[in-house]
Design a protein around this nucleic acid. Structure first.
Length: 272
DNA sequence: TAGGCCATCTGGTCCT
DNA sequence: AGGACCAGATGGCCTA
């Protein structure tokens, strides 16, 4: 299908034993020579690499590396390359975290210093469910508009872009920037919460979200009886108008569940 | 103290 | 060849 799939399938399920040995050995040698690690003196790898290695082991490794690479790079060159690669990887992970923070910001979730930051996995699962819920809400809106206006009139179809007012519209339902506005459960009497929220989200998925931290929950200050997401969380229509990811409020829609199989092109490919 | 989450390093694989 | 992506390993931090 896509390159990622093929990449995954082509990747060996487990490395060869020799590779593991070599990898470990190389790490040890790096630590032994003090060559590799990075700009951060307190980095974990500095500690990882404190394991010693016998001279024989080191010699053996050198021979094996020489066979494998067929390139003789000076230690300084290798170190320089390693530092460069590490730096790139750090930047990549940093960018990923920035994107994750951006995603957290637009998630329908309590924000603030007293609220524990969503974990990465929780963020992703909640985001997925949020998208599913919005998709379902949109479909429901379309259906109701069609029912109300029929197929002959001006509003034969759903085209909010042409009807900018959409009092009908306004901000995106459930968007944190407008928590009070336009969620069907709050502003659209024709859309009971059950019609939207209970029909739109994946219970297994949200169960996964709420079970990510089964012992201490997702929030810093959970209160008794506050539900799986803690005291700061509000269910549908309870003040915020935000969607609730708890298992009580969410049921998977069959027609959108296929979204989970949609493959995304690499961002790198898109941006290039 | 155990378990969850995270940052980082590292080597392998794939793509351009 | 270089860069991006990925997964494994490891240790630190935090919370229950």
């Amino acid at each position: 299908m896509d390159s990622d799939t093929s990449r995954v399938s082509s990747r060996p399920s487990s490395p060869e034993v020799d590779d593991i040995f070599l990898s470990t050995l190389k790490k040890s040698v790096h630590g032994f020579s003090g060559a590799v690690s990075s700009t951060q003196s307190d980095s974990p790898s500095d500690i990882h690499c404190m394991r010693g290695l016998s001279a024989a082991d080191e010699e053996s490794l050198t021979l094996r590396l020489a066979k494998k690479d067929r390139k003789l790079l000076s230690e300084g060159e290798l170190q320089s390359i390693r530092l460069k690669i590490n730096s790139r990887e750090r930047k990549r992970m940093h960018d990923l975290n920035v994107a994750m923070d951006g995603l957290r910001e637009v998630m329908p979730y309590a924000h603030g210093p007293s609220v524990r930051k969503l974990s990465k996995i929780a963020t992703l699962l909640l985001a997925r469910n949020y998208i599913l819920m919005l998709s379902n809400s949109l479909e429901e809106m379309k259906r109701l508009v069609s029912e109300i206006y029929g197929t002959t009139g001006h509003h034969g179809g759903f085209h909010p872009s042409a009807c900018g007012t959409m009092t009908h519209g306004g901000p995106v339902p459930g968007h944190p920037a407008s928590p009070h506005a336009s969620h069907p459960a709050v502003h659209h009497p024709l859309l009971p919460p059950a019609a939207v929220s209970t029909a739109s989200l994946s219970a297994p998925a949200i169960a996964a979200v709420t079970s990510v931290r089964p012992h201490h929950g997702l929030l810093k200050a959970p209160a008794a009886g506050a539900g799986p997401l803690g005291s700061s969380f509000q269910h549908w229509g309870v003040g915020t108008g935000m969607p609730c990811p708890c298992s009580m409020c969410q049921v998977p829609p069959q027609h959108v569940s296929s979204m989970s199989t949609v493959t995304m092109p690499r961002l790198a490919s898109d941006s290039k």
